[in-house]
């Protein structure tokens, strides 16, 4: 079927089998290989992208469900120079093998926006209060993104630093 995906600000008209996941559409049809296929079952977060600003697993959605939607992949983040978050990942060694990194960064971008808009997480004590940026809070908010090298200390520090800079 014919759909239009807006990816990183650019419109792409695609003729896709309805079974094609958004992840495969990005990787195979648009050749945007920054978004990784870790488990293809929505459990590892390596394929995290932003859908109209909200983070989702690209493997758990079909491309045809997103006709007209705005999608941001890692290739669309820092394209005009590294963002503070990306710089912080480098500074704090927020990766080893790097395979989860695009997903971690997309997820952290989505998380920052969710925080800004006051979306709660279940470790937020008072659900109506502004969530604080504790390590537990970040851990919960990043719980969908696995890193087998276990660079979690670096990832959390990078996120904390970049959020601090934004505040």
């Amino acid at each position: 079927m014919n759909i239009t995906l807006r990816v990183n600000g650019e419109s792409h008209d695609l003729d896709l089998d309805p079974r094609v996941s958004l992840l495969d559409a990005l990787r195979h049809h648009l050749h945007l290989t920054g978004t990784k296929k870790g488990c293809d079952h929505g459990q590892c977060g390596a394929c995290t992208v932003l859908l109209n600003g909200r983070r989702i697993n690209a493997c758990l959605t079909l491309a045809c469900m997103h006709d007209g939607d705005d999608i941001t992949t890692i290739e669309g983040i820092g394209a005009d120079g590294l963002t503070p978050l990306q710089q912080a990942f480098i500074e704090h060694d927020g990766f080893q093998c790097g395979y989860c990194t695009p997903g971690q960064i997309c997820s952290a971008v989505g998380m920052a926006e969710e925080l800004r808009q006051g979306w709660p997480s279940h470790v937020t004590d008072d659900l109506t209060a502004d969530p604080e940026l504790t390590r537990d809070e970040i851990a919960e908010r990043m719980s969908g993104n696995l890193c087998r090298c276990s660079c979690y200390p670096g990832i959390v520090n990078a996120i904390r630093q970049s959020l601090g800079e934004q505040a």
């Binding site: 859908l51 697993n57 997820s107 998380m111 997480s121 279940h122 659900l127």
Partner: peptide, 30 residues
Amino acid sequence: HATVAREAAAHYPALAQLAGNIGDPAVRNR
């Protein structure tokens, strides 16, 4: 789930809390 977690909080906190702990954030957004 994400919307329930946020918008039910003032009315039915236990329900909001349940919604906010389903899966992970990416799952809750969909």
